[in-house]
Nucleic acid binder design. Structure first.
Lengths: 352, 352
DNA sequence: ATGAAAGCGCTAACAG
DNA sequence: CTGTTAGCGCTTTCAT
């Protein structure tokens, strides 16, 4: 009944310090005392396996932390599980520039980007990490620094190069690249104060509780108020969808609350332009009566009327350098924990 | 010297009508009368192979139309060549809704999206198709109907399900889904005429010569003019980058040409909003003096001030249904040539 | 309901 | 410079 399973090749002994190869079905099979094919069945057609066996196998899978190898699966089954989509352009998304930056580097290395959208949810991110890990990617790019415990665990176990991008962190999983969202928000709010604004509203994206970047921007806003002796007022804050509509809704909320705002700090350009549109609809003069600031410096910021003051973040650069770090790692160079602070810069235009 | 190479499995005889499996290195090796590993080397480290051999192998590769199998390569070399990127959102890109729509379906099937950006270039698209084919995708999603001869050839040879999305075509490679860009542009221009506009400018994206959708929109615009007895004037047209800046530049060009425009038909919302911004900068009243129309109905169209008249295209739906067609095909259903016309609708708002 | 054997198409390791 | 051998980790096919 037992599996003879010994690797034919000379993988390091278990005790060796060398990077262990990921576990295989054979490992699971041995632990569960079944044959390899049974493990395969449990994973693909659980109904065909007796309940007791199934439970035992599933437990073994969990103990080992087994992640199926879809590459092997694809080879044999002739199904890669991949749909290749070729699109004309990813322009005008906040993440578009990052993707372009990454591709500019990856292309020359023959690497391809498998893209997953977590919808700002760490839970969703965890599922994507699990799914992607099965394809044995050469590296993983994660947005931000907020991840579930499981995500970190899987990533550690997989021993795959990981880069967290978009924010700074003192405890990176592996590599990281970004800028200080807190300082950026602080600087922008501070600039508003410097121009004489005192009743500064905050219109930010929903999800402060789960997303590091959003929380940091909020903290930066409050830091600036606090350090300038301006009282914080919950009435002056609104949490909204990340959209033009969201910005408009936020502005409406601030206005309806009756608090006499003279500026609105927004956590993104899209929200800020939404705020601007709402002001235009109401005939509120910008920046005379209300100043507005965004973050990201997307193209619209420089084009809208009046042009939006915002924080410029080198997104293309972020993608490019993230990819470079990945490539360097894959090439065996630079194995140290690499963290890069890209910085940011204030772009003061007409809305302030 | 010759290769014993006979497949151990019972693939259909060459003459059989069943779908042939893709060619392997062994096929190339046999034709070039070398060993398999030599083929492998020619492809990966050409320098290590004698020039004459190399030439012979390369020729065999070409004759056969061999596309390497990166899945097998990945399994052996333990390098998948894939970088998995997990991002918080692909919102606000023109293609974002399509991607979201596709993912909503693919997710439940355990399928993943490999994304490539062709930058509106059929040449680039060809290279991406070649690269992606090597990963043996279960299906390929292409934007538009303009493709190089080579692209079609590779796709035919690969016998992979292909869906062309975004425009209608009478000669699809395989499946297709979209709407009539020409009719949409015609309808919008016609609506402008119906509201009394006569000096209707055209501000469109560069690339009419290579991109079906752009050409079709231009044709639709001219159709409408022609059928209403309005003379076409090249002075009234501008080809610009697909950006807010591009729209502004286009408006500037029309104004500078001295032709007295009273409306501007734009081939995208982004361009249209750019035009609107330029009007605002110049104090030109919209729609009083100049009417503006866009295409796509992106979020900004309903939010900008005044709200933009545009053509609504069901992009999420397009992605969702494209993915459904792919899944149906993979499940063995619906093997016929499937073409869907999603239609479009005019959304007349304040800029007209 | 479970297992054994075979091999997907390629590349690493080692000849020669 | 070229070839032989031995698998990568799975799933297919055929048994039991």
């Amino acid at each position: 009944m037992s599996i003879s399973g010994k690797r034919h090749t000379k993988r390091g002994e278990p005790a060796e310090s060398a990077a262990r190869a990921p576990s295989r079905m054979a490992d699971v099979a041995r632990l569960a005392d079944v044959s390899i094919i049974t493990v395969s069945r449990v994973l693909r057609e659980p109904a065909r396996v007796a309940e007791t066996t199934r439970t035992r196998v599933l437990e073994a899978v969990r103990t080992i932390g087994y992640v199926p190898n879809l590459v092997a699966s694809s080879l044999k089954s002739r199904r890669s599980g991949i749909v290749a989509a070729i699109i004309p352009s990813v322009a005008h998304s906040i993440v578009a520039e990052v993707i372009r930056g990454m591709n500019s580097v990856l292309k020359s290395e023959g690497l391809h980007l498998l893209l997953g959208d977590s919808g700002f949810s760490p839970q969703e991110e965890e599922e994507l990490v699990a799914a992607f890990l099965a394809r044995r990617p050469d590296a993983i790019y994660l947005t931000g620094t907020t991840h579930t415990r499981n995500t970190r665990q899987m990533l550690d176990a997989a021993r795959v190069p990981v880069i967290e991008a978009g924010n700074l962190t003192v405890s990176p999983i592996d590599m990281s690249i970004g800028y200080s969202n807190r300082q950026a928000a602080y600087a922008m709010t501070h600039a508003l104060i410097g121009r004489g604004r005192r009743r500064i509203g905050y219109v930010g994206q929903i999800g402060r509780d789960v997303i590091d970047r959003v929380q940091d921007r909020y903290d930066g806003y409050r830091d600036a108020l606090g350090q300038n002796g301006i009282a914080f007022s919950a009435e002056l804050t609104a949490e909204v969808e990340l959209s033009y509509r969201g910005g408009a809704a936020g502005m409406t909320a601030l206005l309806d609350s009756g608090c006499d705002v003279d500026a609105v700090f927004c956590t993104s350009d899209v929200i800020a332009v939404g705020v601007l549109f709402e002001c235009q609809r109401r005939g509120i003069s910008v920046p005379k009566r209300i100043a507005i600031t965004g973050m990201d410096d997307q193209e619209i910021a420089s084009q809208c009327v009046p042009a939006l003051s915002t924080v410029k973040i080198p997104r293309y650069e972020m993608g490019r350098r993230a990819a470079e770090m990945i490539c360097a790692r894959l090439a065996g160079e630079a194995s140290g924990k690499n963290s890069i602070d890209l910085g940011f810069s204030l772009v003061l235009r007409e809305t302030t």
